[in-house]
């Protein structure tokens, strides 16, 4: 369960404001560009941010590689890392710590055991963690949501406290449509939608432009706002929500 709803609400309140966010916060995302989708307009306000990428963004060396314009997975991963560096600069984000666990794309779920412990070790240092929702959009996103929830539960059992668990709006499918920037509704966990100021919007746009390799995906995401909420207590034994 989300063991620190008060801290979570305090962070949501801070996100809804305009000032700097001093709380130590981790943003745990699966791929290089997910942090921009999450909060490119807002990241500049985080003063004690730990940014964790679970994958290097390229498929496993053992999987067939077919990314147009790239000759191999390492070249693709390096490009994504460079794009991330540029995007963080473009949106003026200065993470206090920045780590990549270097898992291959689409393998987060397979690593959930070791990943949970490693995340727990890193999340010891923060008061709140923001990650993907469990929404059926991308298998790594769902696995990230699960790993973060498990890590927080592990910390709660071991120490009696865990970081507040929040999530950002990503994308999910409804039938053949892709819905971006919205959560699956959950009355118990209302979303806070931040309407970005003109300068914050420019930061988000500038970050998006840096991910040239992801341009086809990012065009589906609005640059007008960013949404967050306290993470629901998902039942990860069940499939993520689906709607036809």
């Amino acid at each position: 369960m989300n063991s620190s709803p008060d801290k979570g609400q305090a962070l949501l309140d801070a996100l809804a404001g305009n000032g700097p966010i001093m709380t130590p916060v981790a943003l745990v995302v699966a791929h290089q560009d997910d942090e921009a989708i999450a909060a490119a307009g807002t990241l500049v306000r985080f003063r004690a941010l730990t940014l964790i990428h679970l994958t290097d963004g390229a498929t496993s060396p053992s999987a067939p590689f077919s990314q147009p314009g790239f000759s191999n997975r390492d070249e693709y991963a390096q490009t994504r890392a460079r794009e991330l560096d540029r995007a963080l600069q473009a949106c003026l984000a200065v993470p206090q710590r920045q780590i990549c666990y270097q898992l291959p794309d689409q393998t987060v779920g397979e690593a959930i055991g070791t990943l949970t412990k490693r995340l727990a070790a890193d999340l010891l240092a923060v008061d709140a963690v923001i990650t993907h929702p469990y929404e059926g959009g991308h298998m790594d996103h769902d696995a990230a949501a699960r790993a973060v929830a498990l890590a927080c539960a592990l910390l709660a059992r071991a120490t009696g406290r865990a970081p507040a668990r929040l999530e950002f709006a990503g994308y999910h499918r409804i039938g053949n449509d892709v819905r971006t920037g919205e959560f699956w509704p959950d009355p118990a966990c209302p979303a806070v939608k931040i309407t970005l100021s003109p300068s914050a919007r420019r930061r988000r746009e500038a970050a998006f432009e840096c991910f040239t390799s992801q341009r086809d995906n990012l065009r589906y995401f609005s640059t007008l706002g960013e949404s967050f909420r306290i993470a629901p207590d998902y039942d990860f034994t069940q499939a993520p929500p689906t709607r036809s």
């Binding site: 412990k117 070790a121 010891l124 071991a158 120490t159």
Partner: peptide, 15 residues
């Protein structure tokens, strides 16, 4: 980054 966790695992420390 792993120090707190090691203390918890090895000594049962309440970090």
């Amino acid at each position: 980054a792993d120090l707190g966790w090691r203390l918890m695992e090895h000594y049962g420390a309440r970090v």
